[in-house]
Simulated scan of single mutants.
Amino acid sequence: MIDPEELGRALRATLAGFKVPRNIEIVDDLPRDDNGKIAKHRIRAHYADAGARTA
């Protein structure tokens, strides 16, 4: 399994600071629609809800 902190360090070594993600979340699989495509709207909704809870 990939360690998010190790991934962040590797990205900082090769990318400009503003391009490195602030948060890295490792998941087993991404939500998919019935046709097999990644359900980006569900991912966006998940993070929009999380932001609303912390604000």
Rank of each mutant, 00 (worst) to 15 (best):
M1R: 15
I2S: 15
I2V: 15
I2K: 15
D3F: 02
D3K: 08
D3Q: 08
P4D: 04
P4M: 04
E5Q: 07
E5G: 04
E5W: 01
E5T: 04
E6G: 09
E6F: 09
E6D: 14
E6L: 11
L7T: 00
L7V: 01
G8L: 02
G8R: 04
G8T: 06
G8M: 04
R9W: 05
A10E: 08
A10M: 06
A10N: 05
A10P: 01
A10D: 05
A10S: 04
A10L: 07
L11W: 00
L11N: 00
L11G: 00
A13D: 13
T14I: 05
T14N: 08
L15N: 02
L15Q: 02
L15A: 03
L15I: 00
L15S: 02
G17I: 04
G17N: 12
F18H: 11
F18C: 08
F18T: 07
K19D: 05
K19E: 05
V20M: 01
V20Q: 00
V20K: 00
V20R: 02
V20F: 01
P21Y: 06
R22K: 14
N23S: 13
N23C: 12
N23A: 15
N23Q: 10
I24T: 02
E25C: 06
E25M: 10
I26P: 01
I26T: 04
I26L: 07
V27S: 13
V27T: 15
V27G: 14
V27E: 14
D28Q: 13
D28W: 10
D28G: 15
D28R: 14
D29T: 06
D29N: 12
L30T: 08
L30K: 11
L30G: 11
P31A: 09
P31I: 04
R32P: 06
R32F: 09
D33K: 11
D33Y: 09
D34K: 15
D34F: 11
D34R: 15
N35F: 00
N35M: 00
G36K: 01
G36P: 02
K37V: 01
I38R: 10
I38Y: 02
A39I: 11
K40S: 07
K40I: 05
H41E: 11
H41Y: 12
R42F: 03
R42D: 05
I43H: 09
I43M: 09
I43F: 07
I43P: 01
R44S: 06
R44V: 03
R44H: 06
A45V: 10
A45H: 11
A45S: 13
H46R: 10
H46P: 02
H46G: 03
Y47W: 13
Y47L: 10
A48Q: 11
A48M: 12
A48K: 10
D49C: 12
D49W: 08
D49A: 12
D49L: 12
A50H: 05
A50E: 03
G51E: 07
G51W: 03
G51D: 08
R53G: 11
R53S: 14
A55L: 13
A55S: 15
